[in-house]
């Protein structure tokens, strides 16, 4: 039972994803990179909202902090991104900790806490727009090395390398989430999500548990940000910290199913593929369809809220006979 269907399906999916670059063309690989990147971020966000019930609407903050930490260290000192990830994660955990402390210590809850996260993201965006060490508003460009051989240490190379890196990162976050959800901390989080008062009455240190959720979620998100910097090579505060990124990375988790392990991955894939499809269609029809992707997102969100409040995954998991699996 324990090594049952869910594990077999996951291994099957992993094998398919590992083989994808050998089968598909560069376009497919680039779309899958986007899918996996969004799946990574959705999972990281899900730790905070899905598991611990704390809504962040400003997660672009951590993407941007990671991206700029990794990018600037590489730009100025040639520091490998893997070190940049550690630095970025530490900075994001610290900032997340400050936001969490302000919110949880002073009883800023629910919507007001979400507003606090937006405020920090927006304020940091403006700050970085004027931060000349990282290029200010003219942006930060990472030096691109000849793209025909891969340097995994410095994350310089061809799309397939980036593909495997983000696949590895997404798989790692999945495993981390799986482990934590079954741990004592996972119980604390879910208890807080369901009823914080009751959790407190049972002797759970809710402040500490919520701080752990925010800091871990922020740190993991920042690692994704470093990947983003090295994949795109160009950083603008305007886009790295953009509000719409905060929203998009949430949509995947909501559509897939918040609080589940696999929902955010599924949702991110669905949403990214839909966005790609709509963008393609819009290109074929020429101009006048600029916002079609956002309209598509809006529509799918409406449908989900109306028909599947809990997201696509829980029902699908039942269909696949996985509903007995713990927290699948």
């Amino acid at each position: 039972m324990a090594m049952g269907r869910a594990t077999r399906m996951l291994i099957g999916l992993m094998v398919a994803l590992l083989l994808a670059p050998f089968i598909g063309n560069d376009y497919l690989v680039s779309v899958l990179i986007l899918c996996l990147f969004n799946a990574y971020l959705a999972q990281a966000w899900n730790i905070m909202m899905g598991f611990a019930g704390q809504l962040s609407l400003g997660h672009a903050l951590y993407v941007g902090l990671g991206a700029y930490a990794g990018g600037a260290l590489f730009f100025h000192y040639g520091t490998p991104p893997w070190i940049g990830m550690i630095v970025g994660a530490a900075i994001a955990a610290l900032v997340g900790g400050v936001i969490g402390f302000l919110g949880f210590r002073f009883g800023v809850k629910g919507v007001y806490f979400a507003l606090l996260t937006i405020a920090f993201a927006e304020f940091t965006r403006i700050l970085f727009d004027h931060f000349t060490w990282v290029g200010g508003s003219s942006g930060l460009y990472l030096p691109v090395v000849r793209a025909d051989h891969d340097n995994l240490l410095l994350l310089r190379g061809r799309p397939a390398m980036f593909y495997y890196v983000i696949l590895g990162l997404s798989a790692a976050v999945f495993l981390i989430c799986h482990r934590i959800l079954g741990s004592r901390l996972g119980y604390y989080w879910r208890a807080i999500r369901e009823d914080q008062d009751a959790a407190q009455a049972l002797g759970i240190d809710t402040f500490k548990a919520k701080m752990a959720a925010v800091m871990l979620s922020a740190a993991l998100t920042a690692v994704g940000g470093v990947f983003y910097a090295f994949y795109t090579n160009t950083l603008y505060a305007e886009s790295a910290f953009a509000m719409h990124r905060s929203i998009e990375l949430i949509l995947g988790a909501i559509i897939g199913g918040m609080g589940t392990l696999f929902g955010p991955i599924l949702g991110a894939f669905l949403l990214t593929l839909l966005g790609e499809l709509l963008t393609r269609l819009a290109e074929n029809f020429g101009h006048g369809f600029e916002g079609v992707k956002q309209i598509g997102y809006g529509l799918i969100l409406l449908v989900i809220i109306a028909l599947r409040r809990e997201g696509v995954w829980p029902r699908l998991a039942k269909r696949l006979g996985l509903d007995g699996e713990k927290a699948s």
């Binding site: 004592r184 119980y187 879910r190 208890a191 369901e194 009823d195 009455a201 049972l202 002797g203 759970i204």
Partner: peptide, 19 residues
């Protein structure tokens, strides 16, 4: 009552035993 509605009965009991 304040039970945790989406957790199972067993998980609710386990949560009570976390201290």
């Amino acid at each position: 009552r304040q039970i945790f509605p989406t957790l199972t009965v067993m998980e609710n009991l386990e949560t009570g035993a976390m201290i």
